[in-house]
């Protein structure tokens, strides 16, 4: 029972990870890409948290009533990771605003076309 639950957690993790990555790959809209990126990062939070959670355990507060504690470390780590994720998202969105100002679009293919136009033969890749 417990085993299948933990596997379930992993499956969710993988599903979130893959769908996030897929959005990054498949979407041309810069904001949607960032959303995909956030979803992708969320999967990591799950990856760390899920094994830290023990059934029937409680938060690691020393108390005579409990013998089983969850591992606090992953939670701490993920707090940091969430901060990093928020910062990344904020920066990404700020960049998109600037891109919109500069190019008048947030669709990557239109931007690429504009770039290539401006650059002429210079851009090869």
């Amino acid at each position: 029972m417990q085993g299948s639950f933990s596997h379930f957690g992993y499956l969710i993790t993988i599903l979130v990870m893959v769908s996030g990555l897929y959005i990054v790959m498949a979407q041309g809209n810069l904001i949607k890409k960032l959303i995909g990126l956030s979803i992708f990062q969320t999967s990591v939070y799950l990856l760390f948290i899920v094994p830290g959670k023990l059934l029937g355990a409680t938060a690691p507060i020393l108390s005579p009533h409990h013998a089983l504690y969850s591992n606090p470390l992953p939670h701490v780590l993920i707090l940091t990771a969430i901060v990093v994720g928020v910062a990344t998202l904020a920066l990404g969105l700020a960049l998109v605003v600037r891109v919109r100002e500069a190019y008048g679009s947030i669709e990557e293919d239109e931007i690429t076309a504009l770039e290539n136009q401006a650059a002429g033969p210079e851009i090869h890749a």
């Binding site: 992708f40 990404g92 998109v96 770039e115």
Partner: peptide
């Protein structure tokens, strides 16, 4: 202005890498 898109792309890729 291409610096912006370069930075954006690096942000996407860099975040994937870091993740």
């Amino acid at each position: 202005r291409r610096a912006l898109t370069a930075s954006y792309r690096y942000l996407i890729l860099g975040t994937i890498g870091a993740t």
